[in-house]
Amino acid sequence: MSLQFNAIALLLVILILLGVLSSNSSITISATILLLMQQTFLSKYIPFMEKNGVAIGIIILTIGVLSPIVSGKIPIPNWSALLHWKMFAAIAVGALVAWFGGRGIPLMSSQPILLTGLLIGTVLGVAFLGGVPVGPLIAAGMLSLVVLGK
């Protein structure tokens, strides 16, 4: 197998290195899988991942978040906990973040050039600020307020 290094492959290698240097396995694994896909017969599945990757990722993330409730490690809150101000704040913030994410998908579709900046910012946030790579979608939603002004 001969590696065909182009700008995209170089970017993926840089992301792998940043992931390793920052001890962030999410970036390392994601970039490695995409590099392997790009450089092998699996490249034919990249359009599928492009089209469905966000939805698949959200499903997996939701399963991970719900699992502690299903396993019983986190109890279902009682009525008094649901009426606490912290729960109202959690619901409000959750709704706001979901709204940002909903705005992010159309922005990334209509102005894909901005995705590069969002990804760089997300990688920097993950690598150097201890963030997690769920940021591009939410960041795109927040950016849509500035760029689209709606």
Rank of each mutant, 00 (worst) to 15 (best):
P133F: 08
L21W: 14
V70D: 03
L145A: 04
F41K: 10
V97F: 09
I76C: 05
I27C: 11
G72L: 03
N52E: 14
M108N: 02
V13H: 02
V13C: 13
T28N: 04
T28V: 07
A98S: 07
I58L: 14
F5M: 13
V147A: 07
I59C: 11
A140Y: 02
L148Q: 13
L10E: 02
G72E: 05
L148A: 10
W79L: 15
L119V: 13
L148Y: 05
I63D: 01
I74D: 10
G104F: 11
T116E: 03
Q4C: 03
G64C: 07
L107G: 01
L114W: 01
S67V: 12
G64A: 10
L129I: 06
G135I: 07
K73L: 10
L145H: 06
I120F: 08
L148D: 11
V132H: 12
I113R: 02
G53M: 11
P47I: 01
S43N: 15
V20H: 12
G57Y: 03
N24T: 09
F100K: 02
W99P: 00
T62R: 02
I59A: 12
K73W: 08
I105H: 04
S25C: 07
L21V: 08
H84Y: 13
V65C: 06
A127W: 00
V54A: 09
K86S: 15
T62C: 08
L119K: 02
G125W: 04
F88I: 10
P77M: 12
L148H: 05
A31V: 09
S144G: 02
V54N: 01
I105K: 11
W85I: 14
A90W: 10
A90C: 11
I27Y: 08
L36K: 06
I69E: 05
P68I: 10
A31T: 07
Y45Q: 05
I91V: 15
G72R: 04
P77C: 14
F128S: 00
I60H: 04
I58F: 11
S26P: 08
S25V: 14
I27V: 15
T28Y: 05
I91S: 06
L145Q: 06
L61F: 13
K73Y: 11
V132L: 14
L114P: 00
S2F: 12
G117H: 00
